[in-house]
C-alpha cells in the first residue's frame, strides 16, 4: 500500500471542493480518477504534492504522513505530471527530463543525474530529440518528455493530471502504454485524472468516480455503469461489448430524471 488518502477535505473560501475523500493506491496499480470538470480531480491530485494544502484529512506515502516529509524528500517519493506547463522559457528535452533529478542533487547536476536522464530518454525512445527545445516537439512528444521527467527520479508514487487530454488518439494510447509498462516494471503506484471513460477502462486497474467533491464509487472498470455515469456526468450511456472490451457509448445528456431509453428516442426525433 503506497498512497493512502484519508478523509481529505478542501475548500476555496466558502466553496467546498472535496469532502471526506478516501482513496488508496497500491504499488503496481493504476487508479483512474474520473469525474466531470470541477469535480475536484485536480485539487485532489495537487494536494499530494502540497501544491494545495487541504483543510482536513491526511495523505500518507508508504505509511508516512506527507506533512513529515521535507519538500525534496516528498518530491523524490512522488512525482507529478501537470496538465500543462505554464513556464515561459521551455528548455531542451534533455534539460527538461534533468529537472526531474532536482530533488536528488546538489546545486548542479552530476554525471549520475545525466546518466539517469540518458537511460530514460532511451527507454521512451526520445533520444533523437535530446537537444531539441521542448516547445518544438508535438504535443504527444512533449507529454512523453514530461512523463520522462516524472519517472527519472524513480518515485514510488506518480500523479498524472489529465496526461492525455491534449493528445491525438495514437499519442493517448502511447502515453497510457508507457504508464502501464512503467507501473509493472517498477511497481509504482499511479493515480491519473482522466476524461476518456474507455481509455480509463482499458488502462486502469481501478477507477474512482468523483462527484461533487466526494468519491461516488471506486472499484474495477466495471463500476462504470449507465447508472454511475448518469449520476456523475449527467450523461446517458450504453455499455457495449466488443470482443473482450467493454465500451461506454455516450447517448445523450440526460434529463433530470430521464432514462437512457427516453434520451435515445429524443435523439432520434431531433
Amino acid at each position: 500500500m503506497t498512497l493512502e488518502i484519508t478523509d481529505l477535505s478542501f475548500s476555496y473560501g466558502d466553496v467546498t471542493v472535496l469532502e471526506g475523500v478516501d482513496l488508496t493506491v497500491a504499488s503496481g496499480e493504476v487508479v483512474g480518477l474520473l469525474g466531470p470538470n470541477g469535480s475536484g480531480k485536480s485539487t485532489l491530485l495537487k494536494s499530494i504534492h502540497r501544491i494545495h494544502e487541504p483543510d482536513g484529512g491526511r495523505i500518507e506515502i508508504d505509511g508516512r504522513d506527507i506533512e513529515a516529509f521535507g519538500p525534496q524528500e516528498l518530491a523524490r517519493a512522488a512525482s507529478y505530471v501537470p496538465q500543462h506547463d505554464d513556464g515561459a522559457f521551455p528548455a531542451t528535452v534533455f534539460e527538461t527530463v534533468l529537472q526531474g533529478r532536482r530533488p536528488h542533487g546538489g546545486w548542479s547536476p552530476s554525471e549520475a543525474d545525466r546518466a539517469a536522464v540518458a537511460e530514460v530518454l532511451a527507454r521512451l525512445d526520445l533520444e533523437q530529440f535530446a537537444t531539441r527545445r521542448l516547445g518544438d516537439l508535438s504535443g504527444g512528444q512533449q507529454q512523453k518528455v514530461r512523463f520522462g521527467r516524472a519517472l527519472v527520479g524513480d518515485p514510488s508514487v506518480m500523479v498524472l493530471d489529465e496526461p492525455t487530454s491534449a493528445l491525438d488518439l495514437k499519442h493517448q494510447l502511447d502515453v497510457m502504454e508507457l504508464v502501464s509498462t512503467h507501473v509493472r516494471e517498477r511497481d509504482v503506484a499511479v493515480v491519473a485524472a482522466l476524461h476518456d471513460l474507455n481509455l480509463a477502462s482499458r488502462y486502469c486497474d481501478r477507477i474512482a468516480l468523483l462527484h461533487d467533491g466526494e468519491i461516488h464509487v471506486v472499484g474495477p472498470p466495471e463500476v462504470l455503469t449507465p447508472e454511475t455515469v448518469r449520476t456523475v456526468y449527467g450523461v446517458d450511456v450504453s455499455v457495449v461489448h466488443h470482443g473482450e472490451r467493454r465500451l461506454i457509448v455516450p447517448e445523450a445528456a440526460s434529463k433530470m430524471d430521464g432514462t437512457g431509453e427516453q434520451a435515445r428516442t429524443q435523439l432520434e426525433t431531433l
Binding site: 502540497r50 518530491a75 501537470p82 506547463d85 532536482r102 546545486w107
Partner: peptide, 23 residues
C-alpha cells in the same frame, strides 16, 4: 549561478517546480 538549477526548474512552470520540491 548557485541557484541556477532551481531557476531552471522554475522555468518549467509553477506547479512542476513545486512538485519537484522547489519552494
Amino acid at each position: 549561478v548557485y541557484n541556477g538549477w532551481n531557476y531552471d526548474v522554475l522555468d518549467a512552470g509553477t506547479e512542476t517546480a513545486q512538485s519537484l520540491g522547489v519552494d
